[in-house]
Design a binder for these strands. Structure first.
Length: 945
DNA sequence: TGCGTCACG
DNA sequence: GACGTACGTGACGCAC
């Protein structure tokens, strides 16, 4: 018994495991008595996976311990009473699970350590220290950044979720300094989670810079007076004591009194009787069976409680967490013959649902070729049907041949089509719009569908992304096989058809498996989150509508773009020469860094603010200011003016005239964008590849790009857009009588605002006064601040604040709306639109500047989100309303819908589409303000406006 | 890959 | 009283 050179100690951060397990799993209870055991179940699964992993690892530990926090109060509370003071209260159903997790750890025969008055982190630090001194190696199984200070000299970390090793390089990447200086950086930057104060206004990046420059914290504090930036200098001088306390709080103790020595931690196999007894008492059926199988003993019998009554529709949540059915890649089938596929199809039809996923050669659905299809009908049982895999391609000519043993694509599709189109079989996907488009290109109309991405979006917008990897990790506690491991990355990246079939099976089938598990979890949660209506009316029905719009695409005239590109190229060359002459030297005009150095260092323009990277800011607002310095800085003023011209043209050329030509699909001759439904937190769509929601319009030169978006002969483009929809929604939600009346009277709303605020009669309104009022109106929607308005209008801050105060005075209701919205967000962690869409605001109760962002976002979200809901409702109803007319809906630009229609059907289309749009809130919400839609038409998008 | 910049609503 | 600030997006080029 002992520990020395060649030994390898694993230290498992048990407390972190518990919290991870608790949050990853639904609130499960023990069947027989209702004891909450979700966290214990998750904990056991993680430990079981860990033990299994060691069995097959060539780098298995010789010693291992699981470390827990003893209680929430430690010596750090004596150092700083507010330590961890803003931690939320421990959930009621978690506390009783703590002793059970200790018991679980012991049942797996793992040394289990906790020490009064010390955190788990200190015990880990102490053990790591001892093991290192003894000449052994240490792996800390945790992703807690607070442990990163221990890395180095034979100690490394392993992130158990990402299965990623964390060595000195990874620590340096996170903190910007070597592990031995991490404490210094943390002392400066503080930590809002643990309520460590640090130095106000200094984050990790600034802290790392300072430590890099001065070597260590003590030197930095001793020489703080030398710091150039006045704010930083003052902060360090004023808060030295607080920073030193912070260091004591973050520095881990290496002298925790331990109840055992390293030698006592030798790896021991579990005692089957002890472990199975524990699992049996917890009533973990699946895990008991699995563990018994591994240990080669008979699984224990656990009496099955009486079955719950069957419910209609979606299946009830699994009795045990989904994680209890392991993701076992070996259990996934590869379907290569018709008989097997027929069995699967029969089972799908019988079950009434299937999770489905397609593998293709491209993310662009309009160009992607189908490579394989995966199916899953119950957790853990999934299959992959390869149809388009190839072999070869490595030689000079890249010749390939179809991989052997694949069913013909046509036969597979013919067999699947009946279930895919069967109204009684629900097709479940993750981002189904993608798969539906692939199938549509093969003549299959997939319906009905459910989409786990959209379910998550309806429930969790603002909390996290909704991609499969995120959802799987968050809700299933599992990291799916990264696609990169199959395709590689960068230059060496290949398309999915080049992946060996046996590798593809594991990856593809797992995706369908994950999707099905997510669906079983999310489906019953929708109504508990009160977002069933949102999902059923604003998300799910939008999938086929958007798929049709994207497949239709818009006709773009390549010649027009090409001519414009050439003209831009000439103009750019001329401007570039001129700019170089003015500057007196050649430089890259497109480099903000080089431009800044010329303006501020060489020419000597006063001011010049540096950004995060240390380069001067040279944004349009900065350059515009410089153009006004004709008298004092004539050279710089001229240079700035020409650079602004150059930038505008360069933007138009690279982003629009050049890129759009690339985006024209060779088969259809049209441009097909892709809308992300779950991209923007507020409910807005986002357009990508290419983005057709930011085609220029504000300047004359830019607007000409829209002339390249055309209708084919005999047809016209038709644009319908909501007039002032966000201000109308504001008038309704905040209940502003003057604003509502103005909309009823059909007034120019910005002029009315100006008149009301500045006491100018409408018939004496000047464009400049109206412009200011317009900025204030928008400011209100954005969660106005004096600073922001001042910057926008380029007026003194006090004056801007005066405007805002007057606005609140003249339009009572706005202030109340803002206060109530923020209070709601603080109490509930989310805000809602008029149609019930939830937008989470997790930062609203934060301490730092994040709270300011969150407050403004919370004010804006119900307004922007309600507008987004309204146009979604219109879009969902549009196909039925336009049925029979020779028209296609092509694009959505937040408050505008663009159609392509036969010239003879324009009036009828306008009438029907306008009725849908103006009535889109009905009958769910009766708006106090009517919605007004303006229409325009023409041979191209510019003319249609 | 992150940042600065700029296009849109 | 200080903090940093208009809301929501996506794409491009530069510099690392």
């Amino acid at each position: 018994m002992g520990f020395g050179k060649g030994d390898h100690l694993h230290l498992i951060d048990g407390s972190a495991y518990i919290f991870r397990a608790y949050h990853a799993l639904p609130p499960l209870t023990r069947k027989s008595d209702g004891l909450p055991i979700g966290a214990v179940a998750g904990f056991c699964n993680m430990i079981a996976r860990y033990v299994d992993g060691n069995g097959t690892s060539s780098d298995a530990p010789t010693h291992v311990a699981v470390i827990f926090d003893h209680s929430s109060k430690t010596f750090r509370n004596d150092l700083y009473p507010l330590y961890k003071a803003n931690r939320p209260e421990l959930p009621e159903d978690l506390r009783p699970q703590f002793p059970l997790t200790r018991e679980a750890s012991r049942a797996f025969n793992l040394a289990t350590i906790e020490v009064e008055d010390f955190e788990a982190d200190d015990i880990i630090a102490t053990l790591a220290h001892q093991a290192r001194d003894a000449g052994g190696r240490v792996t800390i199984i945790s992703s807690d950044k607070d442990l990163m200070q221990l890395v180095g000299g034979g100690v490394e970390m392993l992130d158990p979720m990402k299965n990623r090793r964390i060595g000195p390089d990874e620590v340096a990447e996170k903190f910007g300094v070597a592990p031995d200086r991490v404490v210094d950086v943390q002392a400066l930057s503080g930590d809002s989670v643990d309520n460590i104060p640090g130095a106000p206004g200094i984050g990790v990046k600034t802290a790392a810079l300072l430590i890099q420059e001065y070597g260590d914290l003590d030197t930095l504090l001793a020489r703080a007076g030398e710091i150039k930036q006045p704010k930083r200098r003052q902060v360090l001088l004023d808060h030295a004591a607080q920073i030193l306390i912070s260091r004591d709080l973050v520095r881990l103790r290496e002298d925790a009194p331990l109840p055992m020595g390293l030698g006592d931690l030798e790896v021991r196999a579990p005692e089957p009787a002890v472990l199975l007894d524990f699992l049996t008492r917890m009533e973990f059926r699946t895990l008991s069976k699995r563990v018994a199988g591994k240990l080669g003993v008979e699984p224990p019998a656990i009496p099955e409680p009486p079955a719950a009554p069957a419910t209609a529709g979606a299946p009830a949540p699994a009795a045990e967490p989904e994680a209890q059915v392991p993701f076992d890649h070996a259990a996934y089938a590869c379907i290569t013959d018709a008989a097997t596929l027929a069995d699967w199809v029969a089972e799908i039809a019988d079950k009434g649902w299937v999770a489905i996923d397609t593998e293709t050669t491209s993310l662009d659905e309009m160009r992607a070729e189908l490579v394989g299809i995966s199916l899953c009908v119950e957790p853990g049982r999934a299959a992959y049907i390869p149809v388009g895999h190839v072999t070869g391609g490595g030689d000079l000519f890249g010749a390939t041949a179809p991989a052997e043993g694949q069913m013909p694509l046509a036969e597979v599709l013919a067999m699947l089509k009946p279930v895919l189109e069967d109204p009684a079989v629900l097709k479940i996907g993750q981002n189904m719009k993608y798969d539906a488009k692939i199938f549509a290109r093969h003549g299959i109309r997939v319906a009905p569908v459910d989409d786990t991405m959209l379910m998550s979006y309806a429930m969790h917008a603002g909390l996290h992304g909704h991609g499969m990897d995120t959802l799987c990790e968050q809700y299933l506690g599992h990291i799916p096989i990264p696609i990169k491991t199959l395709l590689g990355s960068g230059k060496a990246q290949v398309t999915f058809d080049r992946v060996a079939v046996c590798d593809a099976v594991k990856y593809a089938a797992e995706d369908a498996d994950v999707t099905l598990r997510l669906w079983r979890r999310f489906k019953p949660q929708l109504h508990r989150a009160h977002v069933t209506t949102v999902y059923e009316t604003l998300e799910r029905p939008l999938v086929p509508v958007l798929a049709a719009m994207e497949m239709a695409g818009i006709l773009v005239d390549r010649d027009t773009l090409s001519r414009m590109s050439n003209a831009f190229a000439q103009k750019l060359a001329g401007l570039e020469d001129e700019i170089h002459t003015i500057a007196g030297e050649k430089f890259n005009v497109g480099s903000p860094k080089q431009l800044g150095e010329i303006l501020f260092d060489r020419i000597g323009v006063p001011g010049g603010e540096r950004g995060k990277t240390g380069a001067y800011a040279t944004g349009a607002d900065v350059l515009e200011d410089i153009t006004t310095m004709e008298d004092s800085q004539p050279q710089a003023a001229l240079l700035a003016a020409r650079v602004l011209d150059w930038r505008q043209i360069a933007k138009l050329k690279s982003t629009y005239t050049d890129a759009l030509q690339q985006a024209i699909n060779p088969e259809t001759g049209r441009v097909h964008t892709s809308y992300s439904i779950a991209g923007a937190n507020t409910g807005r769509l986002a357009s990508t590849d290419p983005n057709l929601q930011n085609i220029p319009i504000r300047t004359e030169e830019g607007r000409r790009i829209r002339e390249a978006f055309v209708a084919p002969p005999g047809r016209v483009l038709l644009s319908l857009d909501y007039s002032q929809i966000e201000l109308r929604i504001l008038a309704h939600i905040a209940g502003i009588p003057a604003l509502k009346q103005a909309f009823r009277d059909g007034l120019d709303i910005h002029a009315m605002t100006a008149s009301e605020m500045f006491n100018v009669p409408l018939d004496q309104m000047t464009p400049d006064i109206r412009r200011q009022a317009k900025a204030i109106n928008f400011g209100v929607i954005y969660g106005i601040s004096g600073f922001g308005l001042a910057r926008n209008l380029r007026i003194p801050r006090a004056e801007a604040q005066g405007f805002i105060d007057r606005y609140f005075e003249r339009f009572p209701g706005i202030r109340e709306y803002m206060d109530e919205t923020i209070a709601f967000a603080k109490a509930n962690g989310h805000v809602r639109t008029l149609f019930g869409r939830r937008i989470h605001t997790p930062e609203i109760n934060a301490k730092g500047p994040g709270a300011g962002f969150a407050r403004r976002a919370a004010i804006n979200a119900p307004i922007q989100g309600t507008a987004a809901d309204i146009i979604r409702r219109a879009m969902v109803r549009m196909p039925a309303a336009l049925d029979g007319l020779p028209v296609s809906m092509l694009l959505q630009v937040h408050d505008e819908l663009l159609f392509e229609v036969d010239a003879g059907a324009v009036d009828e289309t306008i009438a029907r589409a306008r009725a849908v749009m103006e009535g889109a809130a009905d009958p769910a919400v009766a708006l106090d303000v009517s919605l007004v839609v303006e229409a325009g038409q023409g041979p191209n998008w510019s003319a249609a406006h």
